Simulated assay, not measured.
Amino acid sequence: MDTSDHSLSTLFLQLGLPAGKAAIEAFLREHRLPAGMTLAQAPFWNAGQAAFLQEALDDDSDWAEMADELALLLSR
């Protein structure tokens, strides 16, 4: 069982992205999720990132809560 901390920072690390506070804030400023688009459909993900996010949400995995939070942040 995966007992690691699942935070926004660790999600960014899982996606292969810089995970420092400033890097996450910059990512959120530079990217938006258009209305009606799911997180995994966003054009700024590569195929592996999109597949990871889709699987996390489809399987309601340990990462689903963080993926939902990221989608919310990108929708603002």
Rank of each mutant, 00 (worst) to 15 (best):
M1V: 10
M1K: 09
T3L: 15
D5M: 06
D5S: 07
D5I: 07
H6F: 11
S7T: 15
S7Y: 07
L8C: 03
S9L: 01
L11W: 05
F12G: 03
F12R: 04
Q14C: 08
Q14Y: 06
L15F: 04
L15I: 06
A19I: 00
G20K: 13
G20Q: 13
A22R: 15
A23R: 05
A23D: 12
E25W: 01
E25H: 09
E25Q: 14
A26F: 02
F27M: 03
L28T: 02
R29F: 05
E30A: 14
H31I: 02
R32D: 08
L33C: 02
L33N: 00
P34L: 03
P34W: 03
P34R: 03
A35V: 05
M37T: 12
M37K: 11
M37V: 12
T38H: 12
A42E: 05
F44E: 11
G48H: 13
Q49P: 06
Q49I: 06
A50V: 13
A51M: 10
Q54N: 15
Q54E: 15
Q54W: 13
E55H: 14
E55F: 10
A56L: 08
A56F: 10
L57G: 05
D58R: 14
S61T: 12
D62G: 14
D62I: 05
D62A: 11
A64M: 12
M66H: 00
A67T: 11
A67K: 09
A67V: 10
E69D: 10
L70M: 11
L74Y: 07
L74A: 07
S75I: 01
R76H: 11
R76E: 14
R76A: 10
